[in-house]
Design a binder for these strands. Sequence first.
DNA 1: CGAGTATTTGATGCAGTTCAACGCTCGTGG
DNA 2: CCACGAGCGTTGAACTGCATCAAATACTCG
Lengths: 242, 242
Amino acid sequence: MATKCRDCPLRRRELFTSMSDIELRYMEKFKVGELTIEPKTQILMEGSNSPQLFTALRGMGLRFKLLPNGRRQVLNMVFPGDFLGLQAGMLGEMKHSVESTTRMTLCVFDRNELWNFFRNHPDRAYDITWLAAIEEHFLGAALTTLGQRDARQRIAWALVRVHQKGEALGLMDNGQMPFPFRQQDLADALGLSLVHTNKTLARLRERQIANWSDNTLSIKDLPALAEMAMLDIEPEPIRPLM
Amino acid sequence: MATKCRDCPLRRRELFTSMSDIELRYMEKFKVGELTIEPKTQILMEGSNSPQLFTALRGMGLRFKLLPNGRRQVLNMVFPGDFLGLQAGMLGEMKHSVESTTRMTLCVFDRNELWNFFRNHPDRAYDITWLAAIEEHFLGAALTTLGQRDARQRIAWALVRVHQKGEALGLMDNGQMPFPFRQQDLADALGLSLVHTNKTLARLRERQIANWSDNTLSIKDLPALAEMAMLDIEPEPIRPLM
DNA sequence: CGAGTATTTGATGCAGTTCAACGCTCGTGG
DNA sequence: CCACGAGCGTTGAACTGCATCAAATACTCG
C-alpha cells in the first residue's frame, strides 16, 4: 500500500516547500504507485522514452552517460526528493541513464499527466520548471568544476556539495552521513582516474579534513574543505517536492 | 520601432516551432521592446536579479561563470534564438553571466509576465520548460566532454556542435559560417589552456579537417571530425522561439 | 575457502600546463 | 604619416599533475 502524499515523511523536512491539502490531494491522483528496487537496478535508460516519472523517496543512485569507448560520465548523484525522468517527459527521450546504487523506493507518476500540470495546475508546472532550472544550475557548477579546478579542488567541491545536501536532508548523524558510492563513481563524476581519486582522498583523510570510508562520509573541517574548493557555503535552496 | 513577433525573420526558419496568430499576438504583448548592444556588453550578471528576459535575435555571445581565482568557465555560446534569463526568472538570481561577443539585438520581455505564462498560457509555459530541459541536456553533454574526452576530442566535439547549430540557423554560406570568438573563449569552454587549444586547432587545420580563422569556421571533413569527437551527427531538434 | 569486487600503493610516462617571446593588425594620438 | 601600444594568434621549450600500468591487500558472499 503506497503512502499518501500528505503522509510522506520526506515532505515534512523543511528543505521542501509545503503544499496545501488540495494540492496534496491532486498529487495523490497523479501518483500511480510506489516502487521498491534493488541496488544496481536501471531506473531510466538513455535513449528510452519512459512512460513513467519518479520521485526518489529513499535510497541513492546515479545519473550517468556512457560513451562509445566505454567511458562513463556521472552527471549527478540521486538523493531523496529528486525528480527523475523530466527529460523523457519533455523531450521525448532520456538523454542519460539513471540507476540505483542502494535499494531505493520511488514514487511513480504517469508521464501522460505531465501535460495536465501545465493545463490545470500552473503551480505544479512552475515547480517542475523550477526543478529544471536548478538542475541546469547544478550542471553549470559541475561543468565549472571539471573545467577550472584541479583534482584536489574537485574532490573538495564534491564532498562539500554532498555534505550540504546530506545536512539539508537530515541525513547527518553525529557528524556522519551515509555515502554508499564507490570511489570509481566519484572519479567518473569528476573526470579523474580512480587511482588519483583514491590518493587524493587519502591525503584528505591524513590531514584530518574529510573521511570517507565504509560507505560513510564525515567532514572534519568544513571551512578548510570549502576554501580548498573555492566554494562559498550557502544553504540549500528550499525546493519543491513532486 | 521594434519588429512585431509575427514579422520576426528568425521565426521563419524551420528550426523553430511555429505559432498561431493568436499566440503571436500574445507574445507581442509580452514583448517590451528591442535592444541593440555593442560587443563585450554585459547582458546579465551572475548574482543579479534582472527584471528582464531576452531572446537573442542577432549576433553572438557567451554565458560564463567566474571563479574567485579569476579563472573563467564558458558554459555555452549564445546564438540567435536563445532565451536568456530564465534562471533569474525562476530562481530569483542569475547563476552565471551573459555577455555579447559581437553587436547583438535582443528581444526584451518583462520578467513579471513569466508567471502569466504559467497561469494563462500553458503552451508557453511548456515551451519554457522545454528550453530548460534542452539546456540541461546540453550541459550534461558538455560535462561529459570535459570529463571523458581528451583535448583533440573536445575541440572536435565543440566544432561539430557549432557547425550543426550554424547549419540549423542558416548561417552557412558556401561551407563557411561566422564564428566571432577568440581561441581563449573556446579554451575556457573546454577546460583547456589557450596554448594547447591553439596547437590543437593548428593540427586540425594542417590535416584539412577544420579551419577556423578570421572569425570564420569551415568544416572540411565533418565525418572525420564527428568520429574524432565520438559524436553521432543528429539533426538539431526543432525548438520553441520565445 | 575461493571468486569477485573494491581499496590501496608504488612506479613510469605523457598530455597538457606554464612560461616566454614574437608577429600581425588595428586604432589612437602626436 | 608614422609611432606606439593593446589585443590576439602563433610557436618553442621546460615542467608537472594526472593517467596509466601493475600488483598487493582487504572485504563480501556463496
